[in-house]
Design a protein around this nucleic acid. Structure first.
Lengths: 216, 216
DNA sequence: CAGTACATGTAAAAGGTTACATGATTCC
DNA sequence: GGAATCATGTAACCTTTTACATGTACTG
């Protein structure tokens, strides 16, 4: 077998975000996409290209069921723009979702391109690493701003305190992660200043403005 | 016709981790895999199934070049177990790596299964969420332990202070992220206790030991 | 002499992204 | 009437994982 454990179980998690959204009430593919964009996009995102086929597949498996206007009172009232295909969770679908939720999660396989660039940037001029630190700082601050706003609007958007607790939990995670990144990026930018001011190290500055680098 | 122009390879970042490892000296596919496992696996990992084909492709593009025993003095000495195919970076390959390193990174698309489960776990008994918090706590602590050990061994494994600075930077990131997760998980486990002790909320405990849940 | 670590690959399948195609309705 | 938004989908392509296939050499 493999000695290098890969880790990531490829278990079609798009299914579960669709089931999860549908568990809160009937929704169309577009509704699911909007819900994902508005509430989970900072830790999970999906595109149309995956949501619609998934919905179709779930329907084929009997985990969701398209419901006509008759079934879903809330849409019939508004003269819908176009034929809007609403789906509801079936009992099988709810069971499937709950089984998945009750199972230990698969740890995320980290694939952080920023760290990958930082890791190898020792061969280049320190300004390159600095750029990455600064980008990381800006993105952390942008995330902080966004998540703070999201938390403020939370009570209005989610009246149910039961659901709100868990939504808030994910926001808190995002906030902590963003603060950690912010602090890190600031520290690293500072440490880099100190690091480059020590010429006896033997590192020679490499100009990257043109094309050349260590090799010549 | 073609949506993906020849120039903009969207991600394919496996190329760069291979180039990056090769930039530090000749290595075989297995060497690259081992290097990835030992030093970047907490923020980037690759399997054999991707490294070998990538190496081949890079060779076809002239970015790396297989080098015989003649070229690489360090391997000829040890009676190698098997034909070990070493590669070196070509000047083109070094330029390609440096160009990529000097470019702003693509922000990571977060896909955090733990948060996804937490997000939807409001429909189940709080013990389910608690399990996820506890798993997150344990994993953060395990990561902390591992990264602390990694940092201690760092000076021995990487004598070059130039490279060490950036390696250490990635370790510090991991430590901060793990501490953030640890704190979060502890807070959430506590907050959950307080949350469930408020029966007037209207939430009814749902037993998940069997099969049933909200729907019934 | 069996098990483990070293070592190199291929093939198939699953998963995910992007571009394209189409059409209705509302707002300006 | 044009732009934006709502709305549903398909096709093509790329990336990543997993299983498989093969073989050497060292260790106990």
């Amino acid at each position: 077998m493999t000695k290098f454990e890969s880790g990531d179980r490829r278990s079609n998690r798009t299914r579960y975000i669709v089931l999860g959204v549908l568990a809160r009430g009937p929704a169309s593919g577009y509704d699911v996409a909007r819900s994902v964009r508005d509430s989970t996009s900072y830790f999970w995102s999906e595109g149309f290209g995956q949501i619609y086929p998934t919905l179709k597949q779930l329907a084929a498996e009997g985990l969701v069921r398209p419901c006509g206007a008759a079934d879903c009172a809330d849409q019939a009232s508004s003269g819908s723009r176009r034929r809007k295909i609403l789906y509801t969770l079936t009992p099988d679908g709810a069971r499937c979702l709950d089984d998945w939720l009750s199972t230990p999660y698969q740890p995320t396989v980290e694939r952080n391109e920023m760290l990958l660039k930082v890791f190898f940037s020792g061969r280049l001029d320190p300004v390159v690493a600095r750029q990455h630190f600064m980008q990381a700082l800006e993105e952390a601050q942008a995330a902080l701003k966004l998540l703070n706003e999201l938390e403020l609007n939370l009570a209005a958007r989610l009246p149910d305190p039961g659901l709100r607790f868990f939504y808030q939990a994910t926001i808190h995670y995002g906030l902590r992660a963003a603060r950690a990144q912010e602090d890190w990026a600031q520290d690293m930018a500072l440490a880099l200043e100190g690091f480059v001011k020590q010429p006896e190290r033997g590192r020679k500055p490499i100009k990257i403005s043109g094309k050349t680098s260590t090799h010549d």
